[in-house]
Structure formats: C-alpha cells, structure tokens
Design a protein around this nucleic acid. Structure first.
Length: 502
RNA sequence: GCGCCUCUAGCUCAACUGGUUAGAGCAACGGACUCUUAAUCCGUUGGUUCCGGGUUCGAGUCCCGGGGGGCGUACCA
C-alpha cells in the first residue's frame, strides 16, 4: 500500500481513514478503473433541474435522461435502495440508486464510495413519493476520490482557524460561507458593470512602487535584485490613475489590491481591495451622486435590497444619502464650534475637554479631525457624506472653492465606519509640490506613514491635469455591510494568518 | 504591540471542588432494511486532551514557559 505522502495535519484515526481510501484507489486501478478520469459530459446542473422540474407531482417518472456531476455529501442507505445527496455548485440534487436498476456490480461499487467523493451519474428525472426531485441513476462513475473525511454533516465546520486556513473545506461545509462570497462577487460585478456602462475604462497600474504614495499608510518593503533597489507594495493606486487622467483617459477605475503594513483586526487585513475611480471635469458633488448610486446598485444586485441589518443597526442605503459638513456635524454631536482657522490653543482646549490626546506639531485642522473622530464619526449610523475636510489632513485634495482652510473632500460613513473617501482632485502642481514637501518633512521627522515626494507625479501634473473628481471605496467593508458580517476575514477568501506550524 | 478568553477523537461537543481505564453524536468499519431527507436500528474501531517543563500519591483540570486562534484596544481603511 502507498503511504500517505501528503498527510499534512492528519493524526490518529484520520491517518487510518486516509490509508483506507488510498487502498481503495489501488484496488480500483488494479481493476482497471481510473479514479481520477479526465472529463465528464454533463448535460444539466442541479440548479437547472430544479428550475425545470420542481413543479413535478410527487411520484412522477420522466423519460428525461440527464448527466449530472458533483460531490456526494450525504447517503441514506435503505438496503437495496440508496438515496444520496449530490452537491453541485450551490445546489443539491438527490440521487435514487436502486439495485434492481443499476445491477449488483454497480450497486456494490456505489457502496464503496465515500462521502466527499466527486461522481458523475446518468439517469432519468423523477420525484419520490414524498416529492423530492431526484435522478434515478442508471450508471455512475467516480470523478475524483476524496482521501480526507468531510466535516460533520450537521454541525459543519466551526473552528474559525480551520475555516480560514482551509477555506475550501469551509465552502464545502458551510452554506453561509458560500453566500457571503457570492454577495462579494455579485457586488463587485455590479460596481464594475455600473462604471463600464457610464463610459469608465478599467485599467491596471503597478503594484510595485518606487515611492509609496496616494495614502498615508505604512508600506511593505520588498527588494528587486537585478535593479538592486527597494520597492514598495502600493498603499493606493491613486497617483497612477491620475497620471492616466493627465494622459487623456477621461474616466478610469481600478479594482486594486493594496497593501498596508499595519495591525490586524476584525476591520483590517494587510492586503485589501479598493475601488478607485477618477473622472475628468467633475467635482466632489458629482462624485457623491455617483457614489450613492453605485452603492445602492451594488446592494440591489447582490442582496436584492438597499435595506440592510448590520451589527444591530437597520441601515437604509437608498439614495440620496445625507450630506453635512464636518464642521456642522461636530456642532451637532459635540456641541462645539470648530474651524481650522481657529487659534491652536482653543482647538487644543476642546481636545482636552473631550479627552483627545494631541501633539505639539498639530494644527487646528488636525485637531478638528481628531475631535470629529472621537465624538462624531461612530455616531453616524445612516449613510452620511461628511463634507469638507481640513486642508492640513488632505494632501491630495483641492482647496475648497469657498474656504482656503478646507478641501473639497468627503468621506462616506455608514454604521460609524468609513466606506469611501473622495475629493475634487488637486491639480495645481505648485500647490501639490508644497504639500508633498510638507509630507516629506513629517517623514523626515519619523512619521513612517507620511508620503514621500513623487517627482514623476508632479511632472505629470505639470503637463496639466483637467479638473477631476476621484473616489476610493473599501470593497471589503462594503461587502461586510451587505453580507451582514462584522469581521473582514469573513469576506476575504484567504485572510492573512500566521504561518501554519507543524 | 498590549489585555482578556480559548485549544479534548477526522468533525461537533462532554468530563463535579484535581481522583478508576477521558465519554457522546456524526464520520469510518461490520450487519439489517427498496421512498429516505442530519434516514433508522444493532455492533465495532478510533485519543501525544496544542507543545515543553513543574507541583502532587494522582493533572484534560492547578502553576510556569512556548505555539495557534478569537475578541477588545492601539495604528489604520
């Protein structure tokens, strides 16, 4: 008998089970049957059969010959009759296997199958006396042998460590895991199609950056041997996308995996997905309208409604969302008047009164943001566009047309969490250079999240970038909201975990 | 990073204040059964109690160290 060569993580009884199943493989091959055949002609999926035949009366027989394939997850043995549940995609179909129909040899072979095996069957469509749609099997073949036992057929797999590390098993055992990812895929498709329909083009920009810019975040560093230089994994695609606006693509977007070398939590994974888009000739008010339309559309097309319940809150994603300035919202929730132009001493006093720690080099704009985050952001449950951020904390946003201390920037807050960030883009290369240099000074003072000066980006702006609105949406957080889950690991197929130890 | 919690059979869970040989359901194996739905019924196998030390006559249980995971918190999206 072959020894298991890949018995990773198997112990005790599981090794015996593994060996038993390997022995079945050997026996099949000796009998001239290939346990991993190369293909199977399927004529129907379980879902299609339900669509076509769910109206059949109990006890019906048809002449409809079908070939279905899937993973056998349950078996109910009645002696000379066996019922089995075949799982195919997200659907199931029952198999009706009668000794008198398939003959003794095939019937015995069916008994040799293990739960978890992939099989292909041919048979006719029928319903049982109790009305369960089934395939009356006339023949079957093994399509792939499962060497490892499936999780508990009733309780499934609940150990979150195993669920995340072995997502394939999670997807087999837990319907809800499949549901959550279906929401994710549908939402992303909806966002993409919505943008394509509006004339946006989907682009791909570099993941390896010489200068990590476009967001204040700590990057991952890697090393290019041939070039003998450090490179950074991108923290945002922003600066490349705006180069494309300079180049004359009027409307671009990218669904971008970005990487930030920061802590892990139920809201943070080291790599996550952002949708960023830029459109020439529009401002942040246009972008706000686009944002609420896109999010409502994604909700409608992924979960069929714009009303969601999340973490105990009822949230209505039906546009239009509330729009309010940060200054007004601070007044509303903290009952204080703040403005980036106020004396720093006054702003510090307000921070002190709310127990917000501050640093000596922060101006009133940064202090105002801190007060907002402490007192207001978490209270914004219904979707809210928080408008007009201080210039001091917005190095890439255009100065507000009516107030030189503010920028034309909004964040969309839902359930107290940031879902999107957008602004009328800064396209004045002289101003942009000054703001980069301010960031570079912070970096030199030890702020490892500050951005460096990106000279090539400045050069691009010097060729002239048209007026432009830009948006970033945190896809993982949007999906959490839509799927009703509170951990980001539930919406990332393979979330980052420490390496598995043996 | 820090704090709290957690880890028992392949899976889901038991095991009073430390006390015989660590149990049950599912899965697996053997048997019965031609309309089941987590099929049922009878029987059997399966354990490095995460790892390493320690205390004790005796440790799954208590202590120390290490590892994995969860939650909270900090940084952040």
């Amino acid at each position: 008998m072959n020894e298991p060569t890949t018995a990773l993580g198997l112990e005790g009884g599981a090794v015996d089970e593994f060996r038993k199943r390997l022995a079945k493989l050997d026996a099949m091959r000796e009998a001239g049957v290939e346990p991993y055949p190369v293909r199977f002609d399927r004529t129907a999926t379980a879902g299609e059969l339900h669509e076509r035949f769910d109206a059949l009366e109990p006890g019906s027989e048809t002449d409809e010959v079908v070939r279905v394939a899937g993973r056998m997850l349950l078996r109910r043995d009645q002696g000379k009759l066996v019922f089995a549940t075949l799982r195919d995609g997200g659907d199931s179909i029952q198999l009706f296997v009668s000794r008198s129909v398939v003959g003794d040899a095939l019937f015995e072979a069916f008994g040799e199958l293990d739960l978890g095996d992939w099989i292909g069957v041919e048979g006719t469509v029928m319903t049982t006396r109790k009305g369960e749609l089934s395939v009356r099997v006339s023949s079957f073949q093994l399509l792939s042998k499962a060497l490892r036992p499936m999780p508990d057929k009733w309780h499934g797999l609940t150990d979150v460590d195993v669920r995340y590390r072995q997502r394939y098993v999670d997807l087999i055992a837990n319907d809800d895991a499949r549901r959550v990812f279906t929401v994710r895929f549908d939402a992303i498709s909806a966002l993409r199609e919505c943008l394509l329909a509006k004339g946006f083009v989907e682009v791909e920009t570099p993941v390896l950056h010489a200068v990590a810019g476009g967001a204040t975040a700590k990057p991952f560093v890697t090393y290019h041997h041939a070039l003998d230089t450090d490179l950074f994994l991108r923290v945002a695609p922003e600066l490349y996308l705006k180069r494309l606006i300079v180049g004359g693509f009027d409307k671009v977007f990218e669904i971008a995996r970005v990487f930030r070398n920061e802590g892990l939590s139920t809201r943070h994974n080291p790599e996550f997905t952002m949708l960023e888009l830029y459109a020439a000739l529009v401002d942040y008010n246009d972008i706000a309208r686009l944002t609420e339309e896109m999010i409502a559309d994604a909700a409608q097309r992924s979960i069929g409604t714009t009303r969601v319940e999340w973490d105990g809150h009822d949230i209505d994603l039906t546009p239009p969302f509330r729009r309010a300035t940060m200054i007004d919202l601070i007044r509303e929730h903290a009952h204080v008047e703040m403005h980036p132009s106020m004396p720093v001493a006054d702003a510090r006093a307000i921070c002190d009164s709310f127990g917000v720690p501050w640093q000596a080099d922060w101006g009133s704009g940064k202090l105002m943001l801190e007060v907002y985050e402490k007192t207001t952001e978490h209270a914004l449950v219904a979707p809210t566009f928080v408008m007009d951020y201080p210039r001091e904390v917005s190095p890439l946003a255009r100065v507000h047309r009516d107030d030189p201390m503010l920028t034309e920037r909004f964040e969309l807050i839902v359930a107290g969490r940031e879902l999107a960030n957008a602004f009328s883009e800064l396209n004045d290369p002289v101003d942009q250079r000054r703001r980069f240099e301010a960031q570079a000074r912070l970096k030199a003072l030890g702020d490892d999240e500050a951005q460096g000066v990106d000279d090539d980006y400045l050069r691009a702006l010097e060729f002239g970038m048209p007026p432009c609105g830009g948006l970033g949406i945190g896809i993982d957080r949007l999906v959490m909201l839509l799927a009703g889950v509170t951990s980001i690991r539930e919406v990332i197929l393979f979330p980052h975990l420490r390496p598995e130890v043996q």
